[in-house]
Simulated scan of single mutants.
Amino acid sequence: MTSSGKLVPHRFVALPGRGPEDVVADARGRVLTGVEDGRILRVDGLAEPARPRVEVLAQTGGRPLGLELLPDDGLLVCDAERGLLRVDLGSGAVRVLADTVAGERLRFCSNAVALSDGSVYFTVATTRHPLARWIGDLVEHSGTGRLLRLAPGASEPELVLEGLQFANGIAPSGDESFLVVAETGARRLTRVPLTGPRAGHPETFAGNLPGMPDNLWRGGPDGPLWVALAGPRVPPLDLFHRAAPAIRRTAARAAVHAPYRPTGTIGALALDDHGRILHHLTARRSRYRMTTSVCEAAGRLVLGSLWERGVAVCERPAP
Rank of each mutant, 00 (worst) to 15 (best):
R242E: 14
R285E: 15
P193S: 05
L147F: 10
G5M: 00
M1V: 15
S305V: 08
A228K: 04
E308S: 12
D175Q: 10
V35E: 04
G264T: 06
L32S: 07
A258I: 09
A154W: 08
E68S: 13
A318E: 15
L41R: 00
Q59I: 00
S91M: 09
P172F: 00
L159K: 01
D214W: 04
P9T: 01
F205I: 03
G231D: 12
L159V: 15
C78D: 09
A206V: 10
V113I: 14
M290I: 12
R284T: 15
L303M: 02
K6A: 15
G34D: 08
G200L: 02
D44Y: 00
M212E: 14
G310D: 01
G310A: 08
P221S: 12
E315K: 11
R30W: 07
D22K: 13
D79L: 03
W217M: 04
A243T: 11
P317I: 04
T100L: 08
E48R: 15
Y288M: 06
R218I: 11
G118A: 11
E158P: 08
C109R: 04
R248F: 06
A171K: 06
D214V: 02
E203S: 15
E21N: 12
H10S: 13
L303H: 08
V234W: 13
A58M: 10
Y288R: 00
V120N: 09
P236W: 12
K6R: 15
S110P: 03
R287T: 14
I277M: 08
E158Q: 13
G231W: 03
A255I: 09
V256K: 05
R11Q: 07
E81L: 15
P317K: 05
G174V: 08
G74K: 01
A25E: 09
Y121C: 00
L281W: 02
A112N: 10
A58L: 08
S4R: 14
D214H: 06
L97G: 08
R149H: 07
